[in-house]
Protein backbone atom coordinates (compact mmCIF):
# COMPACT_ATOMS: atom_id res chain seq x y z
CA UNK A 1 0.00 0.00 0.00
CA UNK A 2 1.16 3.50 -0.77
CA UNK A 3 1.51 6.03 2.06
CA UNK A 4 -1.72 8.02 2.23
CA UNK A 5 -0.19 10.85 4.23
CA UNK A 6 2.17 11.87 1.41
CA UNK A 7 0.82 13.07 -1.94
CA UNK A 8 1.86 11.26 -5.09
CA UNK A 9 2.17 12.90 -8.49
CA UNK A 10 -0.50 12.56 -11.13
CA UNK A 11 -0.62 14.08 -14.61
CA UNK A 12 -3.73 15.64 -16.08
CA UNK A 13 -4.42 13.69 -19.28
CA UNK A 14 -7.35 15.70 -20.52
CA UNK A 15 -9.86 18.26 -19.33
CA UNK A 16 -13.51 18.41 -20.32
CA UNK A 17 -15.43 21.57 -19.58
CA UNK A 18 -18.85 20.67 -18.19
CA UNK A 19 -20.37 24.04 -17.34
CA UNK A 20 -19.12 27.61 -16.95
CA UNK A 21 -17.59 26.80 -13.55
CA UNK A 22 -17.16 23.03 -13.61
CA UNK A 23 -14.82 20.73 -15.49
CA UNK A 24 -13.82 17.10 -15.43
CA UNK A 25 -10.12 16.30 -15.10
CA UNK A 26 -8.75 12.88 -16.00
CA UNK A 27 -5.64 11.97 -14.03
CA UNK A 28 -2.99 9.36 -14.60
CA UNK A 29 -0.74 8.40 -11.70
CA UNK A 30 2.91 8.94 -12.59
CA UNK A 31 4.46 6.20 -10.51
CA UNK A 32 3.93 2.69 -11.85
CA UNK A 33 4.15 1.23 -8.39
CA UNK A 34 1.34 3.41 -7.04
CA UNK A 35 -0.69 2.73 -10.19
CA UNK A 36 -0.66 -0.91 -9.19
CA UNK A 37 -1.65 -0.43 -5.56
CA UNK A 38 -4.16 2.38 -6.10
CA UNK A 39 -7.72 1.07 -6.05
CA UNK A 40 -10.89 2.87 -5.05
CA UNK A 41 -14.59 2.24 -4.73
CA UNK A 42 -17.39 4.49 -6.04
CA UNK A 43 -18.13 7.22 -3.50
CA UNK A 44 -14.59 7.67 -2.18
CA UNK A 45 -12.59 10.87 -2.52
CA UNK A 46 -9.03 12.06 -3.07
CA UNK A 47 -7.22 15.03 -1.56
CA UNK A 48 -5.94 17.05 -4.49
CA UNK A 49 -2.83 19.02 -3.67
CA UNK A 50 -1.34 22.09 -5.27
CA UNK A 51 2.03 22.87 -3.62
CA UNK A 52 1.97 26.36 -2.21
CA UNK A 53 -1.83 26.61 -2.36
CA UNK A 54 -3.19 23.70 -0.39
CA UNK A 55 -5.38 20.65 -0.52
CA UNK A 56 -9.03 20.09 -1.39
CA UNK A 57 -11.15 16.97 -0.92
CA UNK A 58 -12.69 16.02 -4.27
CA UNK A 59 -14.82 12.96 -4.92
CA UNK A 60 -13.90 10.59 -7.70
CA UNK A 61 -16.33 10.81 -10.61
CA UNK A 62 -15.06 7.89 -12.64
CA UNK A 63 -15.76 4.22 -12.22
CA UNK A 64 -13.03 1.93 -10.87
CA UNK A 65 -13.18 0.21 -14.24
CA UNK A 66 -12.28 3.41 -16.10
CA UNK A 67 -8.68 3.74 -17.24
CA UNK A 68 -8.23 7.14 -15.69
CA UNK A 69 -9.12 8.66 -12.35
CA UNK A 70 -11.59 11.45 -13.03
CA UNK A 71 -12.50 14.37 -10.83
CA UNK A 72 -15.34 16.73 -11.62
CA UNK A 73 -14.51 20.00 -9.95
CA UNK A 74 -16.51 23.18 -9.49
CA UNK A 75 -14.57 26.37 -8.83
CA UNK A 76 -15.18 27.17 -5.17
CA UNK A 77 -11.99 27.94 -3.24
CA UNK A 78 -8.28 28.60 -3.76
CA UNK A 79 -7.30 25.09 -4.77
CA UNK A 80 -10.17 24.54 -7.18
CA UNK A 81 -9.60 27.98 -8.73
CA UNK A 82 -5.96 27.10 -9.28
CA UNK A 83 -6.87 23.73 -10.77
CA UNK A 84 -9.26 25.46 -13.17
CA UNK A 85 -6.26 27.26 -14.68
CA UNK A 86 -4.27 24.09 -15.33
CA UNK A 87 -3.87 22.42 -18.71
CA UNK A 88 -3.50 18.87 -19.90
CA UNK A 89 0.02 17.68 -19.12
CA UNK A 90 0.29 19.57 -15.83
CA UNK A 91 1.14 17.66 -12.67
CA UNK A 92 -0.72 17.85 -9.38
CA UNK A 93 -0.40 16.03 -6.05
CA UNK A 94 -2.94 13.43 -4.97
CA UNK A 95 -3.54 11.63 -1.68
CA UNK A 96 -6.08 8.92 -1.31
CA UNK A 97 -8.43 7.29 -1.76
CA UNK A 98 -10.25 8.08 1.47
CA UNK A 99 -13.61 7.40 3.05
CA UNK A 100 -16.54 5.07 2.71
CA UNK A 101 -18.20 4.07 -0.55
CA UNK A 102 -21.69 3.61 -1.98
CA UNK A 103 -22.84 0.16 -0.83
CA UNK A 104 -23.27 -1.52 -4.21
CA UNK A 105 -24.12 -4.83 -2.52
CA UNK A 106 -27.38 -3.22 -1.32
CA UNK A 107 -28.74 -2.75 -4.84
CA UNK A 108 -28.27 -6.19 -6.32
CA UNK A 109 -31.92 -7.18 -6.51
CA UNK A 110 -33.46 -3.87 -5.54
CA UNK A 111 -34.52 -0.72 -7.34
CA UNK A 112 -31.95 2.06 -7.20
CA UNK A 113 -32.80 5.72 -7.00
CA UNK A 114 -29.92 8.12 -7.52
CA UNK A 115 -30.71 11.64 -6.35
CA UNK A 116 -28.25 14.46 -7.02
CA UNK A 117 -28.18 18.20 -6.70
CA UNK A 118 -25.68 20.42 -8.50
CA UNK A 119 -22.09 19.19 -8.42
CA UNK A 120 -23.30 16.44 -6.04
CA UNK A 121 -23.75 14.25 -9.09
CA UNK A 122 -19.95 13.82 -9.32
CA UNK A 123 -19.57 10.99 -6.75
CA UNK A 124 -22.73 9.39 -8.12
CA UNK A 125 -21.42 9.35 -11.67
CA UNK A 126 -18.95 6.78 -10.36
CA UNK A 127 -21.87 4.47 -9.56
CA UNK A 128 -23.70 5.29 -12.79
CA UNK A 129 -20.66 4.48 -14.92
CA UNK A 130 -19.99 1.36 -12.89
CA UNK A 131 -23.50 0.08 -13.54
CA UNK A 132 -23.40 1.00 -17.23
CA UNK A 133 -20.12 -0.84 -17.67
CA UNK A 134 -21.05 -3.95 -15.70
CA UNK A 135 -24.23 -4.22 -17.77
CA UNK A 136 -22.15 -4.44 -20.92
CA UNK A 137 -19.95 -7.26 -19.66
CA UNK A 138 -20.73 -10.71 -20.95
CA UNK A 139 -19.46 -12.68 -17.99
CA UNK A 140 -22.39 -14.16 -16.08
CA UNK A 141 -20.59 -13.64 -12.77
CA UNK A 142 -20.62 -9.88 -12.99
CA UNK A 143 -24.15 -9.37 -14.18
CA UNK A 144 -25.68 -5.98 -13.85
CA UNK A 145 -28.06 -5.28 -10.97
CA UNK A 146 -31.48 -6.41 -12.06
CA UNK A 147 -33.76 -3.89 -10.35
CA UNK A 148 -35.13 -0.74 -11.95
CA UNK A 149 -32.94 2.31 -11.78
CA UNK A 150 -33.73 6.00 -11.65
CA UNK A 151 -31.71 9.18 -11.75
CA UNK A 152 -33.24 12.33 -10.31
CA UNK A 153 -31.06 15.35 -10.89
CA UNK A 154 -31.57 19.00 -10.11
CA UNK A 155 -29.43 21.99 -11.04
CA UNK A 156 -29.77 25.78 -10.95
CA UNK A 157 -30.33 26.28 -14.66
CA UNK A 158 -30.04 24.00 -17.71
CA UNK A 159 -26.62 25.52 -18.32
CA UNK A 160 -25.44 24.42 -14.87
CA UNK A 161 -26.35 20.83 -15.55
CA UNK A 162 -23.24 18.68 -15.35
CA UNK A 163 -22.79 15.63 -17.62
CA UNK A 164 -25.73 16.77 -19.74
CA UNK A 165 -24.16 15.21 -22.82
CA UNK A 166 -23.88 11.88 -21.01
CA UNK A 167 -27.53 11.59 -20.00
CA UNK A 168 -28.64 9.98 -23.30
CA UNK A 169 -26.19 7.18 -22.53
CA UNK A 170 -27.41 6.88 -18.96
CA UNK A 171 -30.88 6.22 -20.38
CA UNK A 172 -29.64 2.78 -21.50
CA UNK A 173 -29.90 1.63 -17.91
CA UNK A 174 -31.69 4.41 -16.03
CA UNK A 175 -34.90 6.36 -16.17
CA UNK A 176 -33.65 9.94 -15.99
CA UNK A 177 -35.66 12.82 -14.50
CA UNK A 178 -34.26 16.34 -14.59
CA UNK A 179 -35.30 19.59 -13.01
CA UNK A 180 -33.91 23.11 -12.77
CA UNK A 181 -34.58 25.97 -10.39
CA UNK A 182 -34.90 28.35 -13.27
CA UNK A 183 -35.13 27.61 -16.98
CA UNK A 184 -33.30 29.85 -19.38
CA UNK A 185 -35.76 31.55 -21.72
CA UNK A 186 -33.23 31.47 -24.55
CA UNK A 187 -32.70 27.77 -24.31
CA UNK A 188 -35.08 24.98 -25.11
CA UNK A 189 -35.75 23.02 -21.94
CA UNK A 190 -37.89 19.91 -21.90
CA UNK A 191 -37.35 18.94 -18.26
CA UNK A 192 -39.10 20.15 -15.16
CA UNK A 193 -38.78 23.46 -13.36
CA UNK A 194 -38.89 23.48 -9.56
CA UNK A 195 -37.62 21.66 -6.52
CA UNK A 196 -36.19 18.18 -6.91
CA UNK A 197 -38.76 16.84 -4.43
CA UNK A 198 -41.36 17.63 -7.07
CA UNK A 199 -39.83 15.04 -9.37
CA UNK A 200 -40.91 12.26 -7.05
CA UNK A 201 -44.48 12.64 -8.28
CA UNK A 202 -43.34 11.74 -11.80
CA UNK A 203 -41.54 8.58 -10.76
CA UNK A 204 -43.44 5.39 -10.19
CA UNK A 205 -41.41 3.26 -7.84
CA UNK A 206 -41.91 0.73 -5.10
CA UNK A 207 -40.69 2.44 -1.92
CA UNK A 208 -40.28 -0.79 0.02
CA UNK A 209 -37.92 -2.19 -2.57
CA UNK A 210 -35.89 0.95 -3.26
CA UNK A 211 -32.36 1.90 -2.25
CA UNK A 212 -31.52 5.60 -2.40
CA UNK A 213 -28.06 7.06 -3.08
CA UNK A 214 -28.10 10.82 -2.57
CA UNK A 215 -25.62 13.69 -2.77
CA UNK A 216 -26.23 17.41 -2.94
CA UNK A 217 -26.71 20.48 -0.75
CA UNK A 218 -27.55 19.50 2.84
CA UNK A 219 -30.93 21.29 2.77
CA UNK A 220 -31.91 19.39 -0.36
CA UNK A 221 -30.84 16.08 1.17
CA UNK A 222 -32.81 16.77 4.34
CA UNK A 223 -35.95 17.66 2.42
CA UNK A 224 -35.59 14.73 0.07
CA UNK A 225 -34.93 12.22 2.85
CA UNK A 226 -38.03 13.40 4.67
CA UNK A 227 -40.05 13.01 1.49
CA UNK A 228 -38.68 9.53 0.78
CA UNK A 229 -39.45 8.33 4.29
CA UNK A 230 -42.99 9.74 4.04
CA UNK A 231 -43.43 7.66 0.93
CA UNK A 232 -42.32 4.55 2.77
CA UNK A 233 -38.66 4.10 1.85
CA UNK A 234 -36.95 2.58 4.93
CA UNK A 235 -34.37 4.93 6.46
CA UNK A 236 -31.83 2.09 6.47
CA UNK A 237 -31.96 2.04 2.69
CA UNK A 238 -31.16 5.72 2.22
CA UNK A 239 -27.48 6.58 1.80
CA UNK A 240 -26.25 10.15 1.70
CA UNK A 241 -22.85 11.64 0.95
CA UNK A 242 -21.89 14.50 3.27
CA UNK A 243 -19.57 17.41 2.89
CA UNK A 244 -17.37 18.85 5.63
CA UNK A 245 -13.97 20.48 5.94
CA UNK A 246 -11.68 17.52 5.26
CA UNK A 247 -8.08 18.31 6.06
CA UNK A 248 -6.20 15.08 6.76
CA UNK A 249 -8.51 12.42 5.33
CA UNK A 250 -7.53 9.96 8.02
CA UNK A 251 -9.57 11.00 11.06
CA UNK A 252 -6.71 12.66 12.92
CA UNK A 253 -7.29 16.38 12.34
CA UNK A 254 -10.84 16.73 13.67
CA UNK A 255 -12.03 19.33 11.13
CA UNK A 256 -14.69 17.22 9.44
CA UNK A 257 -16.42 16.01 12.58
CA UNK A 258 -20.20 15.68 12.24
CA UNK A 259 -21.57 14.66 15.61
CA UNK A 260 -19.55 11.60 16.57
CA UNK A 261 -18.66 10.85 12.95
CA UNK A 262 -15.51 11.74 11.09
CA UNK A 263 -16.84 12.51 7.63
CA UNK A 264 -13.47 11.65 6.06
CA UNK A 265 -13.14 8.24 7.71
CA UNK A 266 -16.66 7.06 8.63
CA UNK A 267 -18.17 8.89 5.66
CA UNK A 268 -18.57 10.66 3.29
CA UNK A 269 -21.26 8.07 2.47
CA UNK A 270 -23.47 7.44 5.49
CA UNK A 271 -26.48 5.28 6.06
CA UNK A 272 -29.21 7.81 6.88
CA UNK A 273 -30.24 6.05 10.11
CA UNK A 274 -26.65 6.25 11.43
CA UNK A 275 -26.62 10.06 11.39
CA UNK A 276 -30.35 10.80 11.56
CA UNK A 277 -30.15 12.29 15.06
CA UNK A 278 -27.62 14.92 14.05
CA UNK A 279 -28.91 15.95 10.62
CA UNK A 280 -31.44 18.54 11.72
CA UNK A 281 -29.28 20.11 14.44
CA UNK A 282 -27.98 23.51 13.49
CA UNK A 283 -24.20 24.03 13.55
CA UNK A 284 -23.49 20.51 14.80
Amino acid sequence: MHDKSIPFEATIRWIKKETRDTATYALKINSREIQRTYTFKPGQFNMLYIPGIGEAPISISSSPTDHEIMHTIRIAGDVTTYISRLNAGDVIGVRGPFGSNWPLEEIEDRDLMIIAGGVGIAPLRSVIRHILMSGRRKKPTSRAPIGRKFILYGAKTPKDMIFRDEFPRYMDAFQVFLTVDKADPEEYWRGEVGLITGLLNKVSFNPLNTVVFMCGPEVMMQGMTKEMILRGVPGEKIFISMERNMNCGMGVCGHCMFGPKFVCKDGPVFRFTDIEGFLGIKEI
Binding site: A76, G77, T80, E243, R244, N245, C253, G254, H255, M257, K282, E283, I284
Partner: peptide
Protein backbone atom coordinates in the same frame (compact mmCIF):
# COMPACT_ATOMS: atom_id res chain seq x y z
CA UNK B 1 -5.57 23.68 15.87
CA UNK B 2 -8.64 24.07 18.00
CA UNK B 3 -12.32 23.57 17.38
CA UNK B 4 -12.70 27.06 18.89
CA UNK B 5 -10.95 28.62 15.87
CA UNK B 6 -13.43 30.62 13.81
CA UNK B 7 -12.55 28.85 10.59
CA UNK B 8 -12.21 25.37 12.00
CA UNK B 9 -15.30 23.99 10.26
CA UNK B 10 -15.13 26.29 7.27
CA UNK B 11 -15.73 24.96 3.78
CA UNK B 12 -15.96 26.90 0.55
CA UNK B 13 -18.84 29.32 0.77
CA UNK B 14 -19.75 28.70 4.38
CA UNK B 15 -18.87 27.85 7.93
CA UNK B 16 -20.55 24.96 9.68
CA UNK B 17 -19.94 26.37 13.18
CA UNK B 18 -19.90 30.16 13.14
CA UNK B 19 -21.32 30.66 16.64
CA UNK B 20 -19.40 30.31 19.88
CA UNK B 21 -22.28 28.30 21.26
CA UNK B 22 -21.78 25.67 18.59
Amino acid sequence: DSCFSTNFARVHGGNFRPSRRA
